[in-house]
């Protein structure tokens, strides 16, 4: 029987190239100041799942948390080739990764047999911990972090390539297991996960995305959050015309002084 792969899909703040104030007086995030996006590493996790599906056949189920804010990440999973999607109820604003993990694990359990649970490794700006580890603890499954490729996949075990500081380690683990996917697929050309499929997009436009009601107690909050603005570092940037030899020379002289 082909594997069932669950993939966590998070909608996270797009914190690239932020301009202007993003905190209000009280230290809250100013609504409207930020946009969201599909967590890029969760997108890598989805890509990994879909590649397994392409190569070996698998059922891929995307699991999300809470109602969509700006981007319907679960629908985007369906557009790219996930077979189904479910939403866990939960409060995204309560920024405790452990609490998120409990809700998501409940949704994963509701899917019946799941062989692999994939999730991005990165800890988004708003999260405090590595979601994969907390999921593994909730489910009682083994987990491997920083996975960026699958070496071998059998009925009951997987060998994952884990990126570490100075290279790679190949880790074998029995299934079911949680794999935290890192900066996966970086060697691909180009380094971008697959886009939507047009026909699927038509078909899945109105697909039902069931909500899994929470059945167990919410995890107690382990921490409180406070945010404060960081004054911008003032860097004065001088543009140097590469065609202008004198300017290049002046730049080198100034930069190398004291170096």
């Amino acid at each position: 029987m082909p594997h069932t792969i669950a993939v966590i899909a998070r909608e996270v703040w797009d914190t690239r190239d932020l301009t202007g104030q993003i905190l209000d007086e009280a230290g809250g995030l100013r609504p409207g100041a930020l946009q969201t996006r599909f967590d890029p590493e969760d997108l890598n996790a989805l890509e990994l799942a879909l590649r397994i599906k392409d190569a070996h056949g698998a059922r891929v189920v995307a699991v999300g948390l809470g109602a969509p804010r700006q981007v319907e990440v679960l629908r985007e999973c369906l557009y790219r080739g996930a077979d189904a999607a479910v939403t866990a109820t939960g409060d995204l604003a309560a920024a405790d990764t452990a609490a998120h993990a409990r809700r998501l694990a409940g949704a994963v359990r509701s899917l019946g047999r799941v062989d692999l649970l994939l999730v991005g490794t990165a800890v988004p700006d708003d999260d405090n911990s590595l979601l994969a580890r907390h999921l593994a603890a909730e489910l009682g499954w083994p987990a491997v972090s920083w996975v960026d490729a699958i070496e071998e996949l059998a009925v009951d075990r997987v060998v994952a390539r884990r990126a570490v500081e100075m290279g790679y380690e190949y880790v074998e683990t029995p299934l079911p297991a949680v794999l935290a996917v890192g900066v996966a697929l970086l060697e691909d050309d180009p380094r971008a996960p697959r886009p939507a499929k047009a026909m699927l997009k038509l078909k899945m436009k109105k697909a039902e995305i069931p909500t899994v009601p929470a059945t167990d107690e919410p995890a107690p909050l382990t921490l409180r959050v406070r945010r404060e603005a960081v004054p911008p570092r003032a860097i004065e940037t001088a543009t140097v015309d590469p065609e202008n030899e004198a300017a290049l020379r002046a730049m080198l002289d100034a930069a190398l002084k004291g170096a």
Partner: peptide
């Protein structure tokens, strides 16, 4: 948040 926010967790 693009080095704009310090989040303190207690």
């Amino acid at each position: 948040f693009d080095r704009k926010v310090r989040t303190v967790w207690v």
